[in-house]
Design a binder for these strands. Structure first.
Length: 693
DNA sequence: AGATTTTGTCATTTC
DNA sequence: ATGAAATGACAAAAT
């Protein structure tokens, strides 16, 4: 039965691969697997690869592409391998073979090439690959060449998702970021998902074949039903490698320990895993070299014709994902394979820093290594003329605009990448619709070690950066699908920025320096491992920490402080002007409001005067009317010029001689004024000036 | 080409 | 006392 399974598996593998090569998309796995594994209500959202691929910003598929599935798989694996941080010959295809050839008995054709390099217990190694996420903590350096082939399975994000002690915050954030990246760059999501979604995509593929082969096993694994999705995934992973063995071991180990899945998997699969591979790649150069040599061999087997040419090319490209992570690799020397080998350990550390959120505690040492390398590169490789030129440049007005922060940002990206890759497009591969991502450090990153920056979630940036860089490699070598539109946003953005500045017409590296601000150029010249925006925007505490923690030269510190001071002041000036403008606008508004109020009051006063005169007139008429009807004791009419009407406090009205009334009225008026403090003189004047008939 | 506006920077003050 | 923020003034770039 087991042989039959293997036979079926291999047959399916071969058939699948052949279909892939022919150009037929092989996606026989996704829907059934998803339902079988997770059910229709699974929290997982299926990655719409096919939709994304086929409709990526309206771009059509590349005619060269034989199969997008194979391409994506290869690309993903290539990226994973690149994420290992070493100078490794692309083993994308090799990894693909290994992932699927778990039975390990393939003997004929190109498959034998893998088998020749793989020991007979390929089952175990495949298990190691699938179990690797849970084994990230362990760091045995017992890995062999084949273990490195499965580094693609190891990702800190996986560890975070799977490991019980994983930081939910960082992983959640990573997931968010990668969802954003999915929006902007679906083609990179494959790789992203590996790190954030616990290797979901890869799992699907791996399981797919096994699903056909061993549907019962998968069902069984679901029946076991560990506590969560991750557990399910790991179960399935194990199923893909050796279902029957898995259940025995797994149940047995479940009985032994139920606490952590990691422990379980470690027990089950002590073979070195991805994480251990990474760690050991830092620690054990021999293993790494062995890996490298075997990769080359595999590659030669797989691609005998174009190996030599593509190898160099990929060697150069392989450094690209790490350029933003390591200052040394960001320099021109990094293009040299020899230097790459020299920087391998630190590069690997960088990669580990990149992807391992839980390993922040150990990040500083790595950063120091990187800084040292950076300083070394500066001392050895940097042209002093360039430094002096950069510093003496008279004009060099800063093009930095923090409000429009992407402008210098993107330029910086291009520039730093140009230094590293010798071509601007190397960094143009970075693409994101998320402002935060852009701002989060990609931009001005002149150097690369990102110690404190991790607090800024630069891991995501780095991840994204690597992804896009990798995609850019694909774009350049023309071996795989091209996604012309994929890079267009960035390129257009660059162009718009530079066009706006009216300087750069071509994103070539030669002219990039002119588009950098003075501070950016200074930072670049001194290999300051932080972008200008970071230096300016990072909190004071973090900034001081950064200065104290890193082995920065005095000139570097001075420049960094100047950059920060100028940047802060620039922002302050902008804010100040904005405030001033706001104050002016507010004052103008106040003036308008006051003018309107004045006009309204004038109208009201006119209205009151009019009504007052009208009342006066009526009172005058009434007065005359009253006097016309008044008669004295002799029955004669009372002369209104000699007498006046006086209203007493009790309401009684008396006819008083006017001379008495006037004197009394004056006295009363003076008392009134003092008492009531009459302010309205106009009204008093009007009242006094009233000409009584 | 000159006028005006915008922006970056420095020096100083304010908080 | 210290340092960051605010602001005036100036110069250069942009319009």
């Amino acid at each position: 039965m087991k042989d039959l399974k293997k036979y079926l598996t291999e047959g399916l593998l071969q058939f699948t691969i052949l279909l892939s090569l022919v150009g037929v998309r092989v996606d026989i796995y996704l829907p059934p697997i998803r339902e079988i594994i997770q059910g229709t209500s699974s929290a997982y959202s299926q990655i719409p690869f096919h939709n994304l691929r086929d409709t990526w910003e309206g771009s059509s598929l590349h005619p060269k592409s034989p199969d997008l599935d194979s391409f994506f798989t290869a690309k993903r694996l290539l990226e994973q391998v690149r994420a290992l941080g070493g100078t490794r010959v692309p083993r994308t295809e090799v990894s693909a073979w290994l992932v699927h050839a778990d039975s390990g008995d393939a003997e004929e054709g190109s498959f034998s090439a893998d088998q020749t390099l793989l020991p007979a217990d390929s089952n175990e190694e495949t298990r190691s690959s699938t179990d690797s996420p849970a084994n990230n903590h362990e760091g045995p350096s017992q890995q062999s060449s084949r273990s490195t082939l499965h580094q693609c399975h190891a990702s800190p994000s996986q560890q975070q998702h799977i490991g019980p002690g994983a930081s939910p915050t960082s992983s959640d954030y990573t997931k968010e970021k990668q969802e954003e990246k999915l929006d902007c760059c679906p083609s990179t999501y494959d790789y992203n998902s590996l790190h954030s979604e616990s290797g979901k995509t890869e799992l699907d593929e791996d399981v797919a074949l096994e699903n056909i082969e061993e549907p019962i096993s998968i069902r069984d694994s679901n029946d076991i039903d560990l506590s969560g999705e991750d557990n399910q995934r790991i179960e399935i992973d194990r199923n893909t490698t050796e279902p029957s063995l898995f259940f025995e071991d797994f149940i047995q180990l479940l009985a032994q320990t139920e606490n952590t899945l990691e422990i379980t998997l470690e027990d089950i699969q002590p073979v070195s895993n991805v994480s251990s591979c990474r760690n050991s790649s830092t620690q054990n150069a021999d293993d790494f070299g062995e890996t490298l040599s075997q990769d080359v061999t595999l590659r030669e087997v797989m691609f005998p014709s174009n190996l030599s040419s593509r190898r160099d090319e990929n060697l150069g490209q392989r450094s690209e994902p790490f350029s933003p992570l390591n200052s040394s690799t960001n320099s021109e020397e990094s293009l040299n394979p020899a230097n790459l080998v020299q920087f391998l350990p630190s590069t690997d550390n960088s990669t580990r820093n990149l992807t391992t959120h839980d390993l922040f505690s150990g990040i500083d040492d790595n950063v120091f290594d990187e800084i040292n390398l950076m300083s070394l590169a500066l001392e050895e490789g940097f042209d002093p003329l360039e430094v002096s030129q950069l510093f003496e440049e008279p004009d060099s007005d800063s093009g930095l605009s923090l409000n429009s922060s992407h402008s210098p940002t993107s330029v910086s990206i291009s520039d730093s990448s140009s230094v590293s890759f010798g071509e601007d497009e190397g960094a143009a591969g970075y693409s994101s619709d998320s402002e935060s991502v852009l701002y989060d450090g990609l931009e001005g990153a002149v150097g690369s070690s990102w110690p404190e920056i991790n607090k800024f979630s630069h891991l995501d940036y780095q991840q994204n950066y690597c992804d896009n860089i990798t995609m850019h490699n694909v774009h350049h070598n023309h071996t795989y699908n091209q996604f012309p539109n994929q890079l267009e946003p960035v390129r257009d953005y660059h162009y718009s920025l530079t066009a706006k500045q009216g300087k750069l017409s071509s994103p070539c590296a030669s002219g990039m320096d002119k588009n950098l601000s003075r501070d950016e150029r200074r930072a670049k010249s001194l290999r300051i491992p932080f972008s200008v925006d970071e230096i300016v925007s990072m909190p004071v505490e973090m900034f001081n920490n950064m200065l104290s923690k890193h082995c920065l030269t005095e000139s570097q510190v001075t420049v960094i402080r100047d950059i920060r001071r100028r940047g802060k002041n620039k922002v302050a000036a902008q804010n100040c002007r904005k405030r001033k403008l706001d104050v002016i606008l507010n004052l103008e508004d106040d003036v308008g409001q006051l003018q309107a109020r004045k006009e309204k009051l004038l109208k009201e006063r006119a209205q009151c005067s009019k009504s007052m005169s009208h009342m006066k007139q009526k009172l005058n008429d009434l007065y005359r009317d009253v006097f016309s009807k008044l008669r004295d004791e002799q029955g004669r009419p009372v002369n209104p010029s000699l007498y006046a009407l006086h209203c007493n406090s009790d309401g009684s009205i008396m006819v008083v001689p006017r001379r008495l009334f006037k004197s009394e009225q004056k006295q009363d008026m003076q008392k009134e004024k003092k008492k009531l403090n009459i302010v309205n003189k106009d009204f008093a004047k009007t009242f006094n000036g009233y000409s009584w008939p």
